[in-house]
Design a protein around this nucleic acid. Sequence first.
RNA 1: CGGGGCGUAGCGCAGUCUGGUAGCGCACCUGCUUUGGGAGCAGGGGGUCGCAAGUUCGAAUCUUGCCGCCCCGACCA
Length: 441
Amino acid sequence: MRLSRYFLPILRETPKEAEIVSHRLMLRAGMIRQQSAGIYSWLPLGQRVLASIGRIVREEQDRAGAIEILMPTIQSAELWRESGRYEDYGLEMLRIEDRHEREMLYGPTNEEMVTEIFRSYVRSYRELPLNLYHIQWKFRDEVRPRFGVMRGREFLMKDAYSFDLDQEGARASYNRMFVAYLRTFDRLGLKAIPMRAESGPIGGDMSHEFIILADTGESQVFSSRRLLDMAVPGEDTDFSADLSPIVDAWTTPYAATEEKHDPAAFERLPESERVSARGIEVGHIFYFGTKYSEPMGAKVAGPDGQMRTVHMGSYGIGVSRLVAAVIEASHDDAGIIWPRNITPFHVGLVNLKPGDKNTDLACETLYARLAKAGVEVLYDDVEARAGAKFATMDLIGLPHQLIVGPKGLERDEVEIKNRRDGSRQNLSPDAAVNWLVAEWR
RNA sequence: CGGGGCGUAGCGCAGUCUGGUAGCGCACCUGCUUUGGGAGCAGGGGGUCGCAAGUUCGAAUCUUGCCGCCCCGACCA
């Protein structure tokens, strides 16, 4: 992509409403535009990151056996009356009336709707386990939206819903999502720690929040250091096998948010193993048994021919929130530092002197060769001063900058700068292409 | 929803107290010079001063009402 043809509205100054670093950087890097309190447009750079995160979430959901669907944003109030939540949900639910004065709502979540789908079609335990998910915009009319997309009113969320014959089956479904989450956050370049969470009316131990550590996190968390160094289950994980050993390993070391914190237990950890930090919740999984299937009549025939109410769980990942969470966890004074799997472009190609024949030719050649090799390049071909170009590249945080100017070219050299550690290497243009292609293949 | 604050050009702000017909920096456009870490000079474009009513010869400025946005708290993916 040529910068001269792209839409990247960089702000040099920080809009005053932005309080936390991710919000500031997202506005400055031209990723989002606020349209109303807690409601944002996603501009090209932001949209690319959002799409990348969605892709990784999808791949890991699919790998774990969940099946993608797409449910609407607007729902009928009737469904929610069945579960009793239409009255319970309160002012956070955005209620709408259509032209026929039918009561509608902008969905804050989809348990009722997915249960309606399930009960309409599934009759037998033989069709279980079933896990349906979608990635869709949700709306919760927060009293006070803040921190940009970290806590907006409209947000993109992956929510999965599992259906099993009994609690034992539900536990296996829960474990599959647990492992999928470990893998998802790892691929996003994040250290996510599963922490025991409030489990609602059902009780038990099947509710975890996945928390990433970031200085600007919203809540205080306490954890064993061991969880930070634990190996994440690999791509070859067999999701049809019993995953409880993995889940057990990840839930044994101490980890709790402030609400569930047990200071005494935490103190028993060796001093060097205690981590007390700020955290951001990026995922939440829980089992809720028959809370919706019972009132809504989601039943299947068991092996004995008797009808049984299915056991359900739901599993959320805040996709749009993750964009901000990643930035909170990965930035410096100059700007964003994208993890390689979700970066909007792989390489920023900087032409230091557009209009100079040699420099233009060298850049065009590099751009074409990298594109041909499948490396995604944002080519800064606009006329601006070197300093401004460097500042922009650092701000938008692409992992590698390929810097090309007349001085270097005289020595047949271009420069590759690593955004994360600031290291630089001077290479011939050929060697630079080879190096970047090897890096991004 | 309680408490606090802010709406003046795309962004950051001054002007409001004490009414006189709108300004600064950045960004944008033109030209010249400059050119490896946010250049300089000169010229230029852009604003129903959040909206509405009122007071006044005259309102960004005073009065009233409304709307929007932000921060702290309670609440939450």
